[in-house]
Amino acid sequence: MTMLSRVAERLYWMARYLERAEDTARLTHAYTHMVLDIPKGSEPGWDTLVRIQDAEYVYGDRYRVFNEQNVLKFIVADLDNAGGIYHAIRAARENVRTTRDVLPGEAWEYVNELYLYAQEYAEKSIGRRNRYRFLEQIIGRCQSVSGMLMTTLPRDHAYRFVRLGYLIERADMTTRIIDVGAAALLGEDRHHSTVDPLIWASLLKSLSAMGAYRREFGPQVEASSMVDFVLRDANLPRSVKYCLNGMREELLPLKNNKSALKLLDRSRRKLSRFDPGVSSREELHLFIDVFQAGLIDISAEIGSTWFLK
C-alpha cells in the first residue's frame, strides 16, 4: 500500500485540526459552564482561554480587552486564530478536500457538512444563548467524523497518520485543559475551597471523564488525583498517557521511526516521573510547558521523517 508523503501529511493535519476543533469546543463549553457556577468575584477571567492557546500575541493584534464577547469571538469564529474552532474546521476541510481519494466517501461529506454548519453559525454563536448548542453540535459532528474514520479506515498507513494526528493533538489539548485549572487557581487570592472542586469537575466534564473519575475516586473531585487521572491513567482515552501509548503503537510499523520513537519515549518517561501529588501548581504549570515543547519536537520529527520536504 503506497502512501504519498503529501497525503500522509494532509491526513495527519486533518486529524489534528478536527481534534483541535472538538477539544476547543469541549473546553469552551466547560469553561462557560464553570463561570456560571462560580460565585461572582471569584470566577477566573476570560483571558485564560486565550492564554492556554498561547495566542495572547495574535489576540492583542485584534482586540484590546479580554471580555467574554471578544474572547469568544476569537475562539469560536475568528479565522486569524489558528487555535480557533472555525479556523480549525476550515483547515481540516482543506486537508480532506485533497485526500478524498484515500478516505471513505463519507469523510468529505461529513467534514463538508461540519464546515457548512460552522460557516453558518459560528458568528451567531458567540453570545451565551446559542453558544451551548453550537459547541455541542461541533463536538458531536467532530465525533461522527472520527468515529466513522476509526470504524472504516483499513489499518494501513492512512490510518496510522490519522491516528497519530488525533492522538498528538489530544495529548496537547488535555495538557492545556489541566493548565486551565492550574492557571485559574494560580492566583493566590483565588484559592478557594468551595470553588476549587467546581473548577476541576468542569474540566473533567470537558474530557467526558467525570463518570470514570467517580468510579475510581468517588464523587468529590480533588486536584492532585484529577490531574494524575487525566495525565497518567492508561485506560482513559483522553489521558495524556493513553495518547502517547497509542502514538507508540502507530509509530512502530513505520519505516525510519527511530528518532521519532526516541523523542516519544523521552516524553513518556517525563510523564511517568512527574508526580502531581507532590507538585505545586507552579511546578505543574512548568511541567506542562516543557511537556508541550516535547510534543512540538515529536511533531517536527514526524514531519521531517515522513512528510514532503
Binding site: T2, M3, L4, S5, R6, D101, H157, K255, N256, L308
Partner: peptide, 28 residues
C-alpha cells in the same frame, strides 16, 4: 480512485539520476 491509482501532484514525483520517476512516500 476508481482505478486504484495514486493521485499525485508535481511535488510528489521526482526523477532520479537513473532517469526513473519516483513518488515520495512514507516508505521512501
Amino acid at each position: 480512485q476508481s482505478m486504484g491509482a495514486e493521485l499525485v501532484e508535481g511535488g510528489d514525483l521526482f526523477v532520479s539520476d537513473d532517469n526513473c520517476v519516483y513518488m515520495r512516500t512514507v516508505d521512501g
